[in-house]
């Protein structure tokens, strides 16, 4: 039954050639995104979550990266499959998908708008490009959406420049940019990281209602476990480019399996729960100097010799909870 899956990533490996050597920013990552589902990708900086998203949209190729192996299958409808990994990143077909069918909200909205054009002009351009409508129609559509995301006085704000918007308003305009063409998949890369907690709540609320209303499948990339708990159906935890755990959000919070996921959950301060914070010693390894075996082994309190030698396979627990850790192997020593 493939018709419920809208996006399937299979053994994706994305590499970058740097001055100091070749790095695999995404290493053998596989996951499925169901229709109308929200998937969270979590991990600390440098774990490959943004590169995973940018690989799907083939943006990494503009940034010096390349997809070395693996498949990215996109199913616009139940019986039509497009293999994104095989498309050229500059091809017409990819351009038509990017922004219209699969679109993305970036972390830093100031960097995503051109400072010398008005917000309205930049948004209208997308409608004109993808929907082939007149300027006037495009303008009306943009204004309608701007008011829908609660930009006050959208009619007059249309001609404002990016610097005239507050941080929260720029993020809303960014969301408008992403949903203008009613995409089937919305990827939000750290959509609230730079924002105040009150504005974060507004933006998460907005993404949630738009997702429900427009029936979008959503991928939310974040380092913040509380955003994951709040927003997602499934979670994929990444570490140094690899997937370490994948599960139903409730199962993951109730019973995290991988030592890294456990540590992530225990190291966030929770209100009303005093006591000592748990902390993992050390920090995420550099992708240039990765340890052999399991990448988390040097920081893992349960690491055995086997962990330091061989990377653990994917192990399935309870039929749907995936974990990459030798602790759960049948034949564990």
């Amino acid at each position: 039954m493939h018709n419920d899956v809208i996006l399937e990533v299979n053994e994706l490996k994305t590499i970058f050639q740097t001055h100091s050597g070749r790095i695999a920013a995404v290493d053998n990552v596989s996951f499925k995104l169901q229709r109308n589902e929200t998937l969270g990708i979590v991990g600390e900086s440098g774990c490959g979550k943004s590169v995973t998203a940018r690989s799907i949209l083939k943006l990494v190729e503009f940034e010096g990266g390349s997809i070395e192996s693996g498949r990215i299958d996109y199913w616009p409808t139940a019986d039509e499959k497009i293999e994104l990994a095989l498309l050229d990143h500059r091809s017409k077909q990819m351009q038509n998908i990017r922004g219209a069918q699969i679109s993305m909200i970036f972390q830093e909205p100031m960097a995503s708008f051109n400072p010398v054009y008005s917000i309205g002009k930049q948004l209208a351009e997308i409608v004109i490009r993808h929907k082939r409508v007149s300027k006037r129609e495009a303008r009306d559509q943009v204004i309608e959406l701007l008011s829908k995301v609660k930009i006050p006085n959208a009619l007059h704000r249309f001609d404002d420049y990016p610097h005239e918007f507050s941080g929260g308003m720029r993020q809303r305009a960014m969301i408008v940019m992403a949903i203008l063409c009613n995409p089937r998949i919305l990827i939000a890369d750290e959509p609230t990281t730079a924002l105040d907690v009150t504005v974060e709540a507004q933006i998460l609320d907005l993404i949630h209602s738009l997702k429900v209303e427009n029936r979008m499948s959503t991928i939310i990339i974040t380092h913040d476990m509380s955003v994951v708990g709040e927003m997602t159906d499934h979670v994929m935890v990444m570490y140094a480019g690899r997937v370490v755990e994948y599960a139903d959000t409730e199962a993951l919070f109730a019973k995290p399996l991988h030592p890294y996921t456990k540590a992530l959950l225990q190291s966030i301060p929770m209100i009303g729960k005093g006591g000592e914070l748990f902390s993992i010693e050390g920090s995420v390894p550099s992708l240039l100097h990765l340890p052999s075996g399991c990448y988390f082994a040097p920081r893992c309190p349960y690491a055995s010799d086997r962990c330091k030698r061989t990377n653990p396979p994917e192990i399935l627990i309870d039929g749907k909870h995936l974990v990459h850790c030798w602790l759960y192997a049948e034949d564990r020593a």
Partner: peptide, 12 residues
């Protein structure tokens, strides 16, 4: 009330 809850049972 703006603080994200980290509680999946409050999702939606």
């Amino acid at each position: 009330f703006s603080i994200p809850s980290a509680d999946p049972s409050l999702k939606g």
